[in-house]
Design a protein around this nucleic acid. Structure first.
Lengths: 229, 229
DNA sequence: TTTGAACATTGTTATAGATCAACTTTATTA
DNA sequence: TAATAAAGTTGATCTATAACAATGTTCAAA
């Protein structure tokens, strides 16, 4: 993780909620431009069990949010694409991260001192609601995930996650930064079975794969498989 | 769910954060005593998928928080004991509950209009931090649960949940309001295997059961079983 | 341009745990 | 208090999926 000097947010195209909030307060004067960091693939952005000190905001690239389980087995909860709050679920008064996040490709984040964010959201109604809205969404998604991991079988789980990937890429054809093992970790499936299922789906003309490029050929069938379990 | 007329919080022994906050604001004058409700066993307090309209606070009895999955199979995430915020994870701007809560015995809750709570926490630093602290704890717990459900096997999962039950009852001997099926739902195990494991643990003198009363005889062994998976 | 490491693939085997079935015990309620 | 429902228990069977094993492919980097 390479830190660059502080950059003025005025040049950032993302205009995150925190910056917008700053503009509308009288805090703007004492405003301190946040630190940016350049990340390489596989760089760990935040590590399960470590202290939460900054609000992290993903501005470029992509990252995976995962929990580190037993025997080095991870479960990927979701993929982050900018703009995204990285530490959202541990934002408020969780002293330590209960999950890890690492970069899937060359990425950029900006780090905002937690104290500043706290100050802001205590004073600002709208920022608080923005953060909490995002928060609520994450929780709903996690609940869904628990059900899926426990009550669907691997075929349904893989289908569900392929749909998810298509959704975040906004296209039925997409290139993933994920290895087969990581695709498996999204659905808590072994690497071997992940491969088997992908070839199975290919043979059934539901998808077509070419390395890490995946094309969904039969969306409605995939949805059906995902729903059935 | 039997609603009683509004009760003045001054008589409540719990003195929840919301009430304490009210006392310290100038809102106290326009304060509207919250509605109380008496619940029978099995009454549903909030239902997955329905709209969030009130902050719910458990003042008496106990309840289970669970997600309703596929084929009528539930997963119990945790047991609530007073004082507890019931709708916490859907407090902030989630329009709908992403889980359900129902009473395990005769219980009481009080219902506080969501608008009032929002007003309060926007104006009050401390209340916000209290709620968010509780929130953060829940999230950490859920992460733990995901790992446990996926990566431990049933013996470890049952052990973990017996420890959890002992913990919330603050005693190694405790009487649960849960059926064997529900104990299974805490660990995502079939009812049959739950029974089998409980008798197995009894035979091994790790626990002793008498109906719904459970005594933990060998705490450290149970912990070991829980940790190994 | 070879060499090794990471990634991907396919077949085989072993097993944890669900499901089915039958039966007993304990609560409800008419 | 009989009758019916709900909860608890035990054994036998079946299967989904992890784990193991072996081999193929890709791609840095020396």
């Amino acid at each position: 993780m390479k830190f660059s000097k502080k950059q003025d947010c005025a040049h950032c195209e993302l205009k995150c909620d925190i910056y917008s909030t700053l503009l509308h307060t009288d805090q703007a004067s004492e405003y301190n431009a946040p630190v940016h960091a350049q990340l390489k693939k596989h760089d760990v952005i935040c590590k399960q069990g470590t202290e939460v000190s900054h609000a992290l905001f993903l501005t470029k690239g992509s990252a995976k949010l995962y929990i580190e389980g037993l025997n080095n087995r991870n479960i990927i909860l979701y993929i982050l694409k900018p703009p995204a709050y990285i530490g959202l679920l541990s934002f408020f008064e969780s002293p330590r991260y209960s999950y890890s996040v690492s970069a899937l490709e060359a990425s950029e984040i900006c780090l905002i001192e937690l104290d500043l964010v706290k100050k802001l959201y205590i004073e600002n109604h709208d920022l608080l609601l923005c953060l909490n809205k995002a928060f609520g969404k994450s929780v709903a998604m996690i609940m869904q995930k628990i059900i899926s991991l426990n009550q669907k079988q691997i075929r349904g789980r893989i289908a569900e996650n392929l749909l998810y990937l298509a959704d975040i890429h906004q296209s039925t054809t997409f290139h993933v930064q994920l290895t087969r093992k990581e695709i498996g970790e999204m659905a808590a499936i072994s690497e071997e079975n992940t491969v088997r299922l992908l070839t199975e789906f290919s043979r059934e003309n539901i998808i077509a794969t070419n390395g890490r490029t995946i094309e969904i050929l039969d969306m409605s069938l995939l949805k059906k498989i995902s729903e059935v379990g």
